[in-house]
Design a protein around this nucleic acid. Sequence first.
DNA 1: ACAATGTACAACCGAATGGTTGTATATTGG
DNA 2: CCAATATACAACCATTCGGTTGTACATTGT
Lengths: 117, 117
Amino acid sequence: MDNEANQQAEDAADAMFHALADRTRRDILRRVLTGEHSVSTLAASYDMSFAAVQKHVAVLERSGLLVKRRSGREQLASGDLEAVRSVRSMLLELEDIWRGRISRIDELIGMPVDPNT
Amino acid sequence: MDNEANQQAEDAADAMFHALADRTRRDILRRVLTGEHSVSTLAASYDMSFAAVQKHVAVLERSGLLVKRRSGREQLASGDLEAVRSVRSMLLELEDIWRGRISRIDELIGMPVDPNT
DNA sequence: ACAATGTACAACCGAATGGTTGTATATTGG
DNA sequence: CCAATATACAACCATTCGGTTGTACATTGT
């Protein structure tokens, strides 16, 4: 597994988790996952400047979790389901790592462990 | 739905996603999910000071993704599977929002959403 | 007893974050 | 054509972040 691609994967993970680590951005993401919203429409929902919301949208866009589409003077944002899925799969991978510990301990101690849940 | 509990949930989400938004911390989490590791052992794996690694461990601990147990002079860290799961469930919730299964966004709209995939 | 080990934490530093205001540039409606 | 709307982006500011070094303290091994 080349370090090249892994590095890019880590960069992507950094960007996505960082994008999710702010409640305003998570809220924006929830909204744009229900359908397209212009940046102005989104901005109207929060108690902060338009520029601040626009920057949050930019962070989400850079992470790939949100996609923008131009329509006249408006920029319509929508959430990217596949990106959300890819984040979830990273978490699943972590859980699989944990399951690896179970089987090892099972071997070592001889104590049968139930590998479900 | 009380804002009290929701606020706490958002705080927890902030902490967990923030903890995950750093590749060193993700790597530490992978290690401690395979089994217990002392902070020194972990620190030896990275090209940075012991204090830096210790702070990363502290961030993970504050987020709940990592738990520490004292054993003599050592502090043994292990990953908390349930916490990882709770993060994954947040992502699943987002995917459910996309599917339109969740009415959840209290304010605003009932935009019709195409319920496939 | 005491030197070595493992951990915690404070103080500091440069860079990044999350917010602001202000300015510039398209696009639209009348 | 012109004013209003929608967006982008720069400059700035306070705070947080990720790293450092240094100090303090408890536990261990000899």
